[in-house]
């Protein structure tokens, strides 16, 4: 495997221009959608089969260093988890990991069973009714295989979205957290940078200015498949009970068989 590539989204630099969202739509030829009223400036409300990059507009009372309302902006995207629930769920092998560590859906193989949609801890993977397949950010698979960064990172005017080798970006991100803490952003923290942390680390990781829950991100996302052995054993236990019940009901008393 080639050296792992990553996207680092530093939300402290995001100005909410949505250039990333537009660049993503244009490069990936994602169609129009009916907007949804979100009560604020955010549009769209959720990731969809036609929205892979989404700038979240979060109003957080008291989150500024001086206690004022913070206007938090976060350009959200598929996390390309090192332990990816969608990838484990996919029964066709359509979802695969590239040599760069990113997670991609082969649109020619996906048969639209939608188990990946239910297995994404971040609500990223979406079903497209027209193609009948699951859709999500490709990490601009075509671009990264031709020496270009993802369209969103390329378009970002403030370097809020940075693309590069994961180890280098993580080192950079750690320094940036220290700088921000020195400036008084006491809740500044990385989300998904630690490859020993949840889901084995995220290949699209973030710098947040508040707790993950403020951005509607799970604090400690877990791999959906972590209980498959326990659940299966409990089911086998249930099978043994009903099976024994049926054997007791049907056994030939005192004759030892048919």
């Amino acid at each position: 495997m080639a050296r792992t590539l990553a996207m680092f989204t530093d939300t402290s630099l995001c100005i909410g221009c949505r250039a990333c969202q537009v660049a993503c739509k244009q490069w990936n030829e994602l169609g129009l959608e009916v907007p949804e009223w979100t009560g604020g400036y955010q549009n769209h409300a959720h990731f969809t089969d036609k929205t892979y990059r989404l700038v979240r507009f979060v109003e957080a009372p008291g989150a500024k260093p001086n206690g004022d309302l913070a206007w938090l902006l976060m350009s959200d995207v598929c996390k390309h988890c090192a332990q990816a629930g969608c990838l484990d769920a996919c029964p066709t092998g359509a979802i695969y990991r590239t040599e760069f560590g990113t997670v991609n859906i082969n649109q020619d193989v996906c048969n639209g069973c939608r188990y990946c949609v239910a297995s994404c801890p971040f609500g990223v993977v979406s079903f497209n009714e027209q193609t009948g397949t699951a859709k999500k950010c490709t990490f601009c698979n075509d671009r990264i295989h031709n020496g270009l960064g993802p369209a969103c990172a390329k378009a970002c005017p403030t370097d809020s979205i940075q693309f590069g080798f994961r180890d280098e970006l993580v080192a950079k991100a750690n320094k940036r957290v220290e700088t921000l803490k020195g400036m008084g952003f006491k809740d500044a923290q990385l989300y998904g940078a630690d490859s020993g942390g949840f889901l084995g680390g995220l290949n699209a990781f973030f710098l947040l200015l508040a707790k993950p829950a403020t951005y509607n991100l799970p604090d400690n996302p877990k791999l959906p498949q972590r209980n498959v052995v326990v659940d299966s054993l409990l089911s086998i236990g249930s099978a043994v009970l009903v099976g024994l019940g049926a054997m007791l009901a049907f056994r030939e008393r005192g004759k030892g068989g048919r």
């Binding site: 066709t92 092998g93 359509a94 193989v109 996906c110 048969n111 639209g112 069973c113 939608r114 079903f127 497209n128 009714e129 193609t131 009948g132 397949t133 699951a134």
Partner: peptide, 9 residues
């Protein structure tokens, strides 16, 4: 399925 013809996948 979204694409029933690909059931075999």
């Amino acid at each position: 399925l979204g694409v029933p013809a690909r059931f075999m996948n």
